[in-house]
Design a binder for these strands. Structure first.
Length: 423
RNA sequence: GGAGAAUUAGCCUAAUGGUAAGGCAGCAGUCUUGAAAACUGCCGUGGGCAACCACUUGGGGGUUCGAGUCCCUCAUUCUCCGCCA
């Protein structure tokens, strides 16, 4: 959520910049409501002031045993008028908040201009694309031959997009997760095991709601709970309505979780195998940052994610998203895309964003700087989502004989196993 | 699931239905060569150029001229009972 006071100061800027993120909400309609609100508020407050002082007088009169019924009757009427005005204010505030909740964050000036993925800019490339000396098979085929994945039975019990990992595939999946978490611990993160079901307030705090409710799995028959689409939601909301001491910033947390996404409306070629799923595993990194240092921290965070791919030996590039391609709440966002030589394309495996105070304002997450309350900045990034990393591993590490070599850094987690062969 | 108790500002703690008192921590200033101490102001949110005003006692409602206080409801925590792993 944006700061209404800042919008008031520079409406043209906010109108122009939010429009670049495809916002339909008109800034001037929010400001019109704001003017109305303040006008009625002033009237209500002066009546309340009157009521307060007169009520005090009534108390004194009663103490002296004098009659006060006339002014009590008058105050009853004032009270009714106040209720009326308060109701109007509440309605206006609700409408204003509803609009504000649908306005996206404003992109940082360092983000490239642009309207779609085509305008994103590559900032770094690591490694060089692998050329196979044999005809490679795609990950789905390879994994099924080696008994790593079982898509058919997953579909049978849940539907498409719910893969089953089996045997060494299950172990490899777990190895990835544990490798990521161990790396983060060495980088000073505290590990968190969060709930997978969260309430509406948490979903709203990180801005999945109200705008994207149809993308979430809901348990609303009896409970109004949501399955988390990412551990960002429970972890970022951990400190809602709290103060984080300035000296603890940046507070670095990481969490493994399963992630649940309805992916409503995404069909097509991306749905093969592990490429797009309704349930997948991810390790998420979250920073609560000092507002003056969040962009430094953002660079550090993207570096952590990149380092994981380097250690896995998977070529990737880092792109900075243009203003029109960024997510709703982000002020700046880097995507990491790993090269998949069988797919012959880049696959997004991480998204690292700085939300500035956009989420912190919703969640009321503060710190105290020079005696003043200030919203912190929140950042998060995948580190990493496993399925497409698994695809890239299958693509890169498959051998001419149909076996799959285990990346070296994962072998300690596989009991020293260095290659998976067909039985 | 049942019974009881609790929730006041960053923290701790008051308030016979009469309009939130203190303390600690923090910030700014005075004093000081400097620091400490002491003193003064600030120290939740909103409105106002300002003087000021309003709101804020876990959330939401109600009674009242007036609610931290009385009533209803919800949440969370603690204690006990029951059930289950």
């Amino acid at each position: 959520m944006l700061d209404i006071k800042k919008i008031r100061e520079n409406p043209e800027f906010y109108q122009a910049e939010t429009a670049k993120k495809n916002s339909q909400v008109s800034i001037s309609s929010v400001l019109d409501l704001d003017v109305q609100r303040r006008k009625i508020l002033t009237e209500a407050e002066s009546l309340k002031s009157q009521r307060n002082s007169v009520s005090k007088k009534i108390g004194e009169l009663k103490k002296k045993g004098e009659d006060s019924s006339a002014i009590m009757e008058e105050m009853r009427k004032v009270g009714e008028r106040i209720t009326e005005l308060d109701n109007q204010i509440r309605d206006i505030e609700e409408e204003q908040k509803r609009l504000l909740m649908h306005i996206p964050n404003v992109p940082h000036p360092s983000c490239p201009e642009g309207t779609s993925a085509e305008d994103n800019v590559v900032v770094r490339t690591w490694g060089s694309p692998l050329v196979h000396s044999f005809t490679p098979v795609e990950h789905k085929t390879l994994g099924e031959r080696l008994g790593l994945f079982d898509f058919e039975r997953g579909a049978k019990i849940s539907g498409s997009g719910f893969p089953v990992y089996r045997g060494l595939g299950a172990r490899l999946e777990r190895a990835l997760i544990q490798f990521f978490l161990d790396q983060h611990r060495q980088n000073g993160f505290e590990e968190v095991v969060p709930p997978y079901l969260v309430n509406r307030k948490a979903m709203t705090g990180t801005s999945q709601l109200p705008k994207f409710e149809e993308d979430m799995y809901r348990c609303d028959k009896d409970d109004d709970l949501f399955l988390i689409p990412t551990a960002e939601v429970p972890v970022t909301n951990l400190y809602d309505d709290e103060f984080i001491p300035e000296e603890k910033l940046p507070l670095r947390l990481c969490a493994y979780s399963a992630c649940f996404r309805r992916e409503a409306g995404s069909y097509g070629k991306d749905t093969r195998g592990l490429l797009r799923l309704h349930q997948f595993n991810k390790v998420e990194m979250v920073y609560f940052s000092h507002p003056e240092r969040s962009y430094q921290d953002h660079e550090e965070l993207v570096g952590h994610a990149e380092n994981l791919l380097k250690q896995l030996g998977l070529p990737f590039h880092t792109i900075v998203l243009c203003k029109g391609d960024m997510g709703f709440g982000a002020a700046k966002c880097y995507d990491l895309e790993v090269w998949a030589p069988v797919e012959k394309r880049w696959l997004e495996v991480s998204s690292v964003s700085n939300f500035e105070d956009f989420q912190a304002r919703r969640g009321n997450i503060k710190t105290k700087i020079n005696g003043k309350n200030v919203l912190v900045h929140t950042l998060n990034g995948s580190g990493l989502a496993t399925p497409r990393v698994m695809v890239a591993i299958c693509d890169h590490y498959q051998q001419a004989d149909g076996s799959l070599v285990i990346p070296e850094v994962l072998r300690p987690y596989m009991g020293g196993l260095d290659v998976i062969r067909a039985k």
